[in-house]
Design a protein around this nucleic acid. Structure first.
Lengths: 332, 332
DNA sequence: CTGAAAGCGCTTACAG
DNA sequence: CTGAAAGCGCTTACAG
């Protein structure tokens, strides 16, 4: 910028005005044109760091997910990124692997880099950040999680109870009677909601409680065989629901190795979309979250907060309805 | 920082020295302790933006992949992130979707944010950036791509010819005779290398040319049925190799719908790891790239360049050997 | 229509 | 052992 000003014998301030399109009505068109031309010729690109220091805006959002290599989160990341880009924002991200310490450390780093806003899949035991970010009055939104202790924290997620109920209804309509779910042994409210919604709907529509199988995340591969075996041969489950993408991949791999007819002997429904569901011997039904809409709302809300224009409170928590994609694995 | 200085009646400079652990031997231990204590109490965290403006270091790396929601790239992103974090660096990323314009726009944004280094999956027609980054003397490394026009650009990727040869050898050893590959209709050198390596090895070991089926990326779903049909029923292929993760998902879904015995009638091998390969009716063999090692080398090289300590040139292009994970789909 | 100047929050060579 | 001062590359209220 200095170079441009010197070359043209004008002030740095003027260059700044022209390049930022400010006061256009008060600046000589001719000089403006010369400045723009030279800037283009010199391939000038403003130093955003300096700009940020002055304006207190980085046009950067921070995103913390559990694991970027997990399809569910990488899909969210993709939509968040697309949506942010539309508004001239960029995304810095980190994977916390559900570890509150890692989460807080990434959060600190994002804050020290002055991100304008945050999108957070907050792990258990890290809820404290909600209070902290509120105190800093730093815009943020929680995704895919919900903390009943913080009813006012802006929150975007699936209506998990409703999703489970939809799945149970579908099972019931297709004549499945002994349902089971495979979930994780964690306190995450979304998993709890899925479970409670499932149980409630099964009682209501089938008059029986479903079988619940909970896995330890770290020992999933080791435990899955026993769980599947018990469900099919001992509990005589005829309709099974996998609660996450990762559980589904592990469970389906196991079922793949067994000689059992899907859907005749065992119906299957999973949570979250995956192309891979179509390479299972029978294409698998799944409940799809409306990720594009959820991402859009997260970004819209954040940008509204950042610009202070809109003071809107999110109807909280904002729970989205997805839709069940029915394939052969659960259709009789 | 100013607040701390005022509160304690010392200079800002002193606070800076203490908090950055500089000149420790020359600073009164007592004052140092008081400064640290107050900083902790005030929950002080330095403004990295200001720091960067002064030091010209952002401790941020830029990563551009084709599509973050693609398993292959999200896995790379995960390892890159992990490795970068180990050295106190963060990662900003973008998905260019193989579009040179999007790529350049993201690149410009990352540069204006003064990233210290770049990791790039450069799409076709965007090779110009190699020259440009060289001129800027901004450290960068190309991953998963290779441009024969720029033999000196630091490049990290799989030894694709060797990988293909390994796959063909494996097919040959297991008695498969009429091989076929499904690839994309693109000029990407890595895909060309896979193809040429495959053809060369097939000629050498089986004395026949393999059948090559090339799909348009955008019409993959529409074209796959005809391709699979032709391969199996017309060309009588008995060993099929899918050249990317995405092709494999589409192709396996199609094969899943057909009544053909795997591996008896048709052997299958894919490129790149995916848990999903295990939910196919017969667990699928795949050639696994050593992503952790590749990521580590990319980061090590970049940090070396950034720190100017090491002036090492990458043995270029650096092509890694992966390994074939043999499962039932290709074992006779 | 244009410029001089202050300042964003830090770092660091220099002086004492 | 400590501080005053310049400067990183911008923006913007103010003065002319």
């Amino acid at each position: 910028m200095k170079d441009i000003a010197n070359e043209l014998g004008v002030s740095v301030a003027l260059v700044s005005y022209v390049l930022n399109g400010k006061k256009t009505d008060k600046i000589n068109e001719n000089t403006a044109a010369r400045i723009k031309e030279l800037a283009a010729k010199m391939n000038y690109s403003p130093n955003q760091i300096a700009k940020s220091l002055k304006t207190n805006r980085t046009h950067t959002l921070g995103l913390i997910v559990a694991d970027i290599s997990n399809l569910f989160y990488s899909s969210i990341a993709k939509y968040i990124e697309e949506e942010a880009n539309k508004h001239g924002y960029h995304v810095i991200y980190g994977s916390a692997h559900e570890d509150p310490e890692r989460f807080n450390s990434i959060l600190q780093l994002l804050l020290s880099r002055q991100v304008d806003g945050l999108i957070l899949a907050v792990p258990e035991k890290a809820e404290g950040c909600i209070q902290m970010l509120g105190d800093l009055s730093k815009p943020f939104v929680v995704i895919d999680r919900k903390f009943n202790e913080y009813p006012k924290a802006p929150t975007i997620l699936l209506d998990n109870r409703h999703a489970s109920a939809t799945i149970v209804e579908h099972f019931a309509e297709n004549g499945f009677k002994r349902l089971g779910v495979v979930t994780l042994n964690r306190k995450l409210v979304s998993l709890q909601d899925r479970k409670e919604g499932f149980v409630e709907a099964a009682m209501r529509l089938l008059g029986t409680k479903p079988f619940i199988y909970a896995l330890e995340e770290e020992q999933m591969d080791a435990q899955i065989e026993a769980v599947i075996h018990k469900a099919i041969y001992k509990d005589k489950v005829d309709g099974l629901c996998f609660f996450t993408n990762k559980i589904a991949m592990t469970g389906l791999a196991r079922i793949s190795a067994i000689d059992i007819a899907v859907p005749e002997q065992l119906g299957i429904v999973c949570f979250d979309e995956a192309k891979a569901y179509n390479i299972f011997r029978t294409p698998v039904s799944y409940y799809m979250q409306p990720l594009p809409e959820m991402s859009k709302m997260a970004i819209d809300y954040l940008l509204g907060q950042i610009d202070k224009k809109e003071n809107k409170i999110l109807a909280n928590p904002k729970e989205f309805i997805g839709n069940l994609v029915v394939q052969k694995s659960s259709r009789r």
